[in-house]
């Protein structure tokens, strides 16, 4: 298992602009959406990192921007990292898919698209997952209003 410092220095090699936060139990890395794909490949394939297991993928609406949070762990070494990909464009949010790197991402990304409207470039089958194809709006966004189907309590 590598320490936070070691993981951090390797990540900074690939994404020099990444911001690292070590306050929590896991190392948290914040990057821009354009830097994500090369970093994802490095995290998965670097011989000392080998983050082969994506155990959580979710979107977050920060009102000013959106982000996608990836929780990754290595079944080989046991270390964990949290990557937060920031997407500034709320109108047309796009980020590269990682479903070819971690297969589980395919369904998780469809969920994030369905509920947050985040589009994943090169995703093999990006459609609504839970909601119907005709649904208007992205329910988990903070500015979502739906007077008919009440979801506020």
């Amino acid at each position: 298992m590598m320490s936070h410092e070691e993981i951090k220095s390797l990540i900074l090699n690939y994404s020099p602009e990444a911001v690292c936060d070590e306050s929590g139990p896991w190392l948290q890395v914040s990057i821009q959406s354009t830097d994500w794909l090369p970093l994802a490949e490095a995290l998965r394939n670097h011989s000392q990192l080998q983050f082969d297991y994506l155990f959580c993928l979710t979107g977050v609406d920060w009102k000013t921007h959106l982000s996608v949070v990836y929780h990754l762990t290595s079944k080989v070494f046991g270390h964990t990292v949290v990557v937060k990909v920031k997407i500034d464009d709320r109108i047309n949010p796009v980020v590269e898919t990682v479903s070819n790197i971690w297969r589980t991402a395919e369904l998780h990304e469809r969920e994030a698209y369905d509920l947050f409207g985040i589009r994943f470039n090169s995703h093999p089958d990006l459609r609504r997952l839970f909601l119907t194809d005709e649904w208007v709006g992205w329910p988990l966004r903070k500015d979502y209003e739906d007077p008919i189907n009440m979801i506020k309590l």
Binding site: F55, E106, H108
Partner: peptide
């Protein structure tokens, strides 16, 4: 994800069945 309020800002449940179904 908490913003310091009495309710969560964002809540995510990572459910085991969802990932198992993807296989």
């Amino acid at each position: 994800i908490s913003e310091g309020a009495t309710t969560p800002y964002r809540m995510k449940f990572r459910s085991p069945g969802f990932s198992n179904l993807s296989a």
